[in-house]
């Protein structure tokens, strides 16, 4: 084990880059507490602008004066949670099948899935849009969730993970007469918690910050996500005249995701449970 001294050295060593890393975010936080008309003239009033002086809460108050902000939060939450659950379901099932079960055409399915990884969003955007319009699906939660469910990245990630789990765990269960589906559910899924958490964080983030698709799909204000809603409030040239408010909306929109990350990060960085895997 590391001695205390080298540990403290390490902490000191990382502190500098960590601080530098944090500076843009701190700046954003500081700007969000400054009045817009001051920011229109200078963004570096006190200590490079890193200290919010003059101080105001107006930017936040203005955001919450929009009656629909809570609705937008709710929409974002529904969409992000819905998408995350769907992606987890689809990816773990397919990932497990591709990693651990043998069936004819498996390599074909894997390659087929990998190819999908390279399809740029722009190539499917319009066809998808017109398809949803034909079905009359726009302005709904499922329109915001469904196009993002089949992410090959998720399947790929889970497949890689399941592959790394030693065979003997599974074989022991098979000898006990446990079915493949039971192994998946009772043995594999619990083991997959770190990978699933990673995938969940990735998906949730993606869903939360997703912009172009919700923009065209959700035209009604009641269906806006928070990212969309906050963007719709902005005036033209808001970066020059309403900078503080933009920063405040950035903070507001980001906060839930940060909290979520703080809650779940320990699952990512956690020694694997008993009977864990070896590389």
């Amino acid at each position: 084990m590391q001695s205390n001294r080298s540990y403290y050295w390490l902490v000191t060593l990382i502190s500098l880059p960590a601080f530098l890393w944090l500076v843009p975010t701190l700046w954003m936080l500081s700007l969000s507490f400054q009045p817009n008309d001051v920011l229109a003239r200078t963004t570096s009033s006190t200590f490079f602008g890193l200290i919010p002086l003059p101080f105001t809460l107006d930017n936040y108050a203005a955001l919450f004066s929009y009656g629909q902000t809570p609705v937008w939060f709710l929409n974002s939450t529904i969409v992000a949670v819905g998408m995350t659950l769907a992606v987890l379901f689809v990816s773990t099932t397919a990932g497990y099948a591709l990693a651990r079960l043998s069936f004819p055409g498996k390599n074909f399915v894997i390659i087929f899935c990998l190819i999908g990884l390279m399809v740029p969003e722009q190539a499917v955007f319009i066809p998808l849009y017109t398809m949803f319009a034909d079905f009359g699906w726009h302005n709904s939660y499922h329109a915001l969730i469904l196009p993002r469910v089949a992410v090959p990245i998720g399947v790929f990630l889970m497949m890689q993970f399941f592959k790394a789990i030693p065979r003997d765990i599974e074989e022991a269960a098979r000898l006990d007469g446990v079915s493949w589906l039971q192994i998946f559910w009772h043995v594999m899924l619990p083991l997959a918690r770190p990978a699933m958490t990673t995938l969940a964080i990735l998906t949730f983030l993606y869903a939360w910050n997703d912009y172009l698709w919700p923009l065209v799909s959700a035209q009604k204000r009641e269906m806006f996500t928070i990212t969309l809603g906050l963007a719709s409030i902005q005036t033209n040239f808001a970066q020059s005249e309403g900078l503080g408010r933009i920063m405040a909306s950035g903070v507001i929109a980001t906060l839930p995701v940060v909290v979520l990350f703080l809650l779940f990060q320990r699952y990512v960085v956690q020694a694997m449970t008993a009977g864990g895997t070896k590389g």
Binding site: I126, T130, H138, L215, S232
Partner: peptide
């Protein structure tokens, strides 16, 4: 019933809406 949207992508949204006939 007003449907406000953000400036930067207004025409993307509008064109998509036309393309979707809504």
């Amino acid at each position: 019933n007003t449907l406000p949207t953000d400036w930067g992508n207004y025409y993307d949204q509008l064109k998509a809406a036309y393309a979707g006939k809504t």
